[in-house]
């Protein structure tokens, strides 16, 4: 479990990125931080592995304040996946995946064997192991990034807009892949995105953040759609425009569901 207790962050240039945030991130679930740019969601994420230290307040993992942990050791115990994969361009895929185990001093052979298994886990062919990141497609690079994040079998996986830079088709594929992985592995995933649809798709808990680093609502997607906390949330999720209001019409004896724009969304199962 990850807890934020009265956490604020003011950067040296004066911007208040996170303002007095209290939130509990439940274990073995996916929590998605969603908001427009400047809402402090990435800053909040980066406080968990001490890439950013809060100006005030505490971040706790399983009851221990992260401020008491040595940053490097802490980071090595938490998986991190970022936009544009953040792979080391001069190392092969297998070495990239094995980066953290090797940093921890594991034997090269063991680290590589485990890295190969991880390639299977994220749905990459083992033949790609000796390629360099630049020789992979964007979607493949992102999968390598996920494999690297999982390399030390961390309890916590932080994902910072990991699918932001790939095309929509590959993104949909990666999202399904993540859902599958999460079903198998059951990590505590904290996921940052600015895409509300992605948030609703992946999140058990969705945290909607607004400009100035404040949390507007933190709840399950169902709860947010049913009871948006305020106008900002309603607008952000598109409920106010009726975008999410579905209606059913009988067409040729079957009940077809239409979305707010009048586009056919599906057929009701009887």
């Amino acid at each position: 479990m990850i807890e934020f207790r009265g956490v604020s962050k003011r950067f040296p240039d004066g911007t208040l990125a996170v303002a007095d945030v209290d939130i509990v991130i439940p274990p073995r679930k996916t929590t998605v931080l969603v908001g427009s740019s400047g809402s402090g969601k990435t800053t909040l994420l980066r406080m968990i592995n001490r890439m950013v230290d809060p100006t005030s307040g505490h971040v706790l993992i399983d009851g221990t304040d992260v401020a008491t942990r040595e940053p490097v050791a802490l980071r090595r115990s938490i998986g991190y996946v970022m936009q544009n994969s953040g792979l080391l361009p001069h190392r092969t895929v297998i070495d990239n995946v094995a980066t953290v185990p090797l940093l921890r001093g594991e034997r090269r052979r063991d680290a590589h064997a485990r890295a190969l298994e991880l390639l299977d886990t994220v749905g990459l062919d083992r033949s790609l192991a000796d390629r360099y990141p630049s020789q992979l497609s964007g979607g493949q690079q992102q999968r390598v990034g996920v494999a690297r994040g999982l390399a030390v079998d961390p309890n916590i996986l932080l994902m910072d807009e990991p699918f932001g830079a790939v095309d929509p088709i590959v993104r949909a594929e990666l999202q399904q892949e993540l859902l599958r992985l999460q079903g198998e592995l059951g990590k505590t995933v904290v996921f940052v995105t600015h895409d509300i649809d992605e948030a609703f798709l992946l999140g058990d808990q969705v945290v909607i953040m607004r400009h100035g680093g404040k949390i507007s609502q933190a709840a399950s997607p169902t709860e947010i759609l049913a009871n948006p906390a305020d106008d900002f949330v309603a607008e952000f999720v598109g409920a106010d425009r009726g975008k999410r209001a579905l209606h059913v019409t009988e067409v040729g004896g079957r009940r077809v569901v239409f979305d707010g724009d009048g586009r056919a969304a599906g057929v009701l199962a009887s």
Partner: peptide, 18 residues
């Protein structure tokens, strides 16, 4: 060197010297 690569190296737990 791409700042994002360095950022990523720090995020996975490399020391400054590493």
């Amino acid at each position: 060197v791409d700042r994002r690569t360095i950022d990523a190296a720090r995020a996975v737990g490399m020391r400054e010297s590493q």
